[in-house]
Write a protein that binds this DNA or RNA. Structure first.
Length: 663
DNA sequence: AATTAATCTCTTTTT
DNA sequence: GAGATTAATT
């Protein structure tokens, strides 16, 4: 497919900073990939071009698309196509010394950070710790140091949190570890303080393309500004109407800031939509017109008017689920479509349950978005704890996890004594094990296993350093700790088997990756915390998608069922109370614009809340879709769930025919 | 009083 | 279906 004039303009414009306002489905990824090709074609070396995304998935997809554009071109590998965080890791790895960090620092995930804070605060109340964690993250996103946060504190509670922030950062530094926010914040700090480092990176990365620009937070924007320099060698692509991540620090204002900081900024709008039919876009436009606008934008399409948006009132959640599932089953047969052509979108994860139930009943295959990531599974975290420790023996959280899993006669008593000793001397637990003074605090039967363990880790580390193949080192590590037996001893057979399976998948993946990227195991360990293994999980199987609206951003489906569109859900009650209707409306907008051919909106009249039934109001957003684009099913008898099918009985009969509902 | 069983309530999520 | 809170049971 060729580019339209606006897209061509965006691709070719290189005279200065450029902001591309790319409406939903307007081909923004195409612009980015073509622009990369254009830059290289114009003589810019691939190693000087950087495309920045928010998720690994987006980075991978971009890589694939560029690879497809220039098959067999080795130079593609020299491009920097990575997430903000992965870029941060690369910068920090190279410049760690300037920040008093060793190059093999560890990256802590949210759980590690939570555990550290819990210990620091000494509280057991999860809510409190989560709030503290959230606050610290916001401070880091705003590039506020603990000292500055403490100075700005207006009340005692804030001051306490700021002190916790300081303690937390000190702890991280002691562990030679950073958290996710540091991956952005520390490079900013580095570049602000060390002009030479900044110069090196500016020389290295000379043009930036930023995807989903509306999702950047303060720190990310600062990092970009530093790297892009005064001249503004970048193309930022984004859509203010699709900003749905303010709650985790994203700042749509960054779109405005861009205009202030770069007065020479050129703005190009992409308004032709290649995804949806006219009525869907009309509904989306009408809806979003209710929001205050940063930039005026109106999507249009050449795909014809299409079917009206169908709005249906349902009796309750079960009816909604049954109706949606039935309609999908019937629609698929009538239109000879695939299950993968359908998506059910909802506001909150818990809403998926009823639909899962009915889909299973009907033996309809489905794919559930989200869920816990591969790396959050206990068995994977066990293994990465070992790897982290091997790469950085000062990583106390990794030490504690590894030394206690599998159990090897080292329990809380021993660890407490060890931790106290290490704390007094400002050293890591691992280092403390080899201190002579420790012997007086521990019994020989406590010290023995510790020494054995640390010797073991050192040996593995030595081998990994020598560049032994990752596969060999991993296999030996696993058999030495007898992890398989650990799983089978502590779990029932079925569970143990799947977990062992996961471990093997993980090691195989690591080994492959090490080989493909020509990296040692230790180098790989550096970035493992940022990756998710879903990379390889290109589910080819035909299945209905179940997804939160958030997780569906960037995706598209021929037929979309948007469910539970009620007040207190979408918009969510807490957002209404906080006066954050605009973001909820954008969320609705994102949901509507996922649909290519037809959109089905439904809301329940009643919902079970514990014992009693609660009546539900249809969402204000339904009315905001406008009259014209909608066909309402509300007039019908609410007991009739057939919705366009002659009767429920006929539908069931149709589905009962053999060979239709395959599982 | 402490432990277990029943009960209810769920923002959104990546790195 | 988890995780927290409350009721029930020992």
């Amino acid at each position: 497919m060729s580019l339209n004039p606006r897209q061509i303009e965006a691709v070719r414009y290189l005279d200065g900073p450029l902001l591309v306002l790319a409406g939903a489905g307007s081909g923004k990824t195409r612009v980015i990939t073509h622009k990369i090709a254009h830059l290289v074609g114009r003589g810019c070396a691939p190693k000087h071009v950087a495309a920045i995304t928010f998720t690994n998935k987006a980075a991978r997809e971009m890589q694939e698309r560029i690879g497809a554009m220039a098959p067999g071109n080795r130079a593609v590998r020299e491009l920097t196509i990575s997430t903000f965080h992965a870029l941060g890791v690369r910068i920090l790895r190279g410049e760690a010394a300037a920040l008093g960090l060793k190059p093999r620092f560890s990256i802590l995930d949210a759980d590690d950070a939570f555990a550290i804070l819990a210990q620091l605060i000494g509280s057991v109340d999860k809510q409190t710790i989560r709030r503290a964690q959230w606050q610290i993250s916001s401070w880091k996103n705003a590039l506020l140091s603990p000292e500055e946060a403490e100075k700005q504190a207006t009340d005692e509670q804030h001051a306490t949190l700021a002190r916790a922030y300081r303690q937390y950062d000190l702890t991280l530094r002691a562990y030679q570890a950073v958290d996710f926010d540091d991956l952005i914040g520390l490079p900013v700090q580095l570049f602000s303080e060390h002009a030479d480092a900044l110069g090196r990176w500016r020389d290295r990365l000379r043009y930036f393309l930023i995807d989903e620009y509306q999702d950047t937070n303060g720190a990310q924007y600062r990092l970009l500004r530093l790297l892009c320099g005064e001249a503004g060698r970048f193309t930022a692509v984004g859509d203010d109407d699709q900003a749905i991540y303010a709650w985790r620090g994203a700042n749509v204002e960054n779109l405005n800031t861009l205009q202030t900081d770069y007065p020479q900024l050129k703005v190009i709008k992409l308004e032709q939509n290649y995804r949806s039919t006219g009525r869907i876009l009309q509904a989306a436009n009408t809806l979003i017109a209710n929001n205050p606008k940063l930039f005026e934008k109106r999507l249009w399409s050449e795909l014809g008017a299409g079917e009206p948006v169908q709005v249906t009132a349902m009796k309750d959640e079960e009816h909604e689920a049954e109706s949606v599932v039935m309609r999908i089953a019937a629609h698929r047969i009538q239109h000879r479509t695939a299950y993968a052509d359908y998506a059910i979108l909802y506001r909150g994860n818990h809403q998926a349950r009823v639909f899962e139930q009915y889909l299973r009943n009907q033996r309809i295959p489905y794919r559930l978005s989200g869920g816990q990531s591969f790396f959050e599974r206990a068995e994977i975290k066990d293994l990465t704890a070992y790897l982290r420790l091997v790469a950085n023996v000062d990583d106390d959280p990794a030490f504690i996890r590894a030394v206690t899993t599998p159990r090897r006669g080292i329990g809380p008593q021993t660890l407490e004594a060890l931790g106290a000793y290490a704390g007094e001397r400002h050293m890591s637990m691992f280092a403390a094990v080899y201190e002579l003074g420790l012997a007086s605090r521990l019994k020989p039967q406590q010290l023995g296993p510790l020494r054995t363990f640390c010797d073991f880790i050192n040996r593995i580390g030595h081998r990994a350093e020598q560049g032994e193949p990752a596969r060999d080192v991993l296999d030996d590590l696993l058999s030495a700790i007898d992890y398989r037996s650990h799983l089978f001893d502590s779990l029932d057979t079925r569970d143990a088997e799947t977990r062992w399976d996961n471990v093997q998948k993980f090691t195989a993946w690591l080994a492959d990756k090490a080989e493909a990227d020509e990296k040692t195991l230790l180098e790989l360990t550096q970035t493992v915390a940022l990756m998710n293994l879903l990379e390889g999980r290109n589910d080819e199987s035909d299945a209905v998608s179940l997804s939160t609206i958030h997780a569906a951003k960037g995706l598209e489906f021929p037929y979309v069922f948007l469910v539970g569109v009620e007040e207190d859900i979408l918009p969510h009650r807490e957002s209404v109370e906080a006066g954050k209707i605009d973001e909820e409306r954008r969320l609705m907008y994102v949901a509507v614009t996922r649909a290519q051919k037809q959109l089905f909106v439904s809301h329940c009249l009643k919902r079970r809340r514990g014992k009693e039934w609660q009546t539900c109001e249809p969402s204000r957003f339904i009315a905001e879709l406008g009259e014209e684009a909608i066909r309402s099913g509300a007039k019908r008898d609410p007991d009739d769930r057939s919705d366009g099918i002659a009767s429920l009985a006929a539908l069931k009969a149709m589905l009962a025919k053999p060979g239709n509902a395959t599982g």
